[in-house]
Amino acid sequence: MVNYVFRRLLFFPVVFIALSLMIFSLQMLLSPVQRISAYITSNSELKGGREQIEALIKKYGLDEPFLTQYWEWIQNILSGNLGWSETARSPVSEVLISLFPATVELVILAFIPSFLGAVWLGTKAGANLNRPKDHAIRIFTILGWSFPTFVFGLIMLLIFYGYLNWFPPGRLSQWAVTEVESGNFIRYTGANLIDSLLNGRWQIFLDSLRHLIAPIITLTYVNLANMTRVMRTSMLETLRQDYIRTARAKGLSEKIVQNKHARRNALLPVTTMAGMELAYMMGGVVITETIFDYHGLGQFAAHAAANLDFPAVLGFALYFALVLVLLNLVVDLLYPLIDPRVVLK
């Protein structure tokens, strides 16, 4: 068991070396003049002309040979703070740590309804193969899958904020931000919902919830289709099993057969997949976060990628790899609990 966990975690250094080489080689495709852009925020800084650009290239050692630069880069990254992010103007590790709670809060809260919804819808669809209900559910979920997330998100924002003024963008309203930053509010976790509860501040809790709902709806709907599809397929398969026939033959009502016997077994593949799905949501909230002005890792990573901030991109990739490994681990460990037949080697 310990051995198994260890083997899983061993994957991490492999990912680190491979990713760092990959990203570093990619960035070396660019000329020093292009790479200096990561250090320049505005064109007006170029009024010093070529002379200034060359001075900057020298200062940051961008014209050194490949290996020298890679070595320096790796050293910088291994020094504990994962290097310096020029777009965030902070060490990468600091950025990741400070934005992580926000993203986790959003993703977990969106994951729960999409998982439960998928199980529910998938069961219904599977049990009603090719009947109107099945078609309706499939259309409903594929709809969410077939529309650009940013359009759906913008429409949500427009309706819930622009017209109704229920769910504003951002993470907190200005008054709440002032409260939170005032020093009378202790940040335990960085997740607003939890912190406000721990501080016993109902108003802030509600405010933070208000800001979360619209992005949650967007994320949930967009991520519903995949898991529903797997649940449906798995349900179809289970319903053909002998023991289901037996149960039916025993005269149990269809509802009990579906909900008690079939669904439980059908859950297995969905659970496996849910781990991956959750991981991909953690890495793929780029657009939702951008639209709803929700400062989290996704928005940060997108900004970093567009501005060629490679240490930040690597940091984000490492975070994602870690999430992936850990969630896979959790799923693997959960497996024997759901299905006693499975034994970890």
């Binding site: 990619l26 793929g284 780029v286």
Partner: peptide, 17 residues
């Protein structure tokens, strides 16, 4: 390793380059 790269961000980096 490739699976461990967040898809959209990776694609973004490549197209930027």
């Amino acid at each position: 390793v490739f699976m461990a790269v967040p898809f959209l961000i990776a694609a973004m980096v490549l197209t930027t380059l």
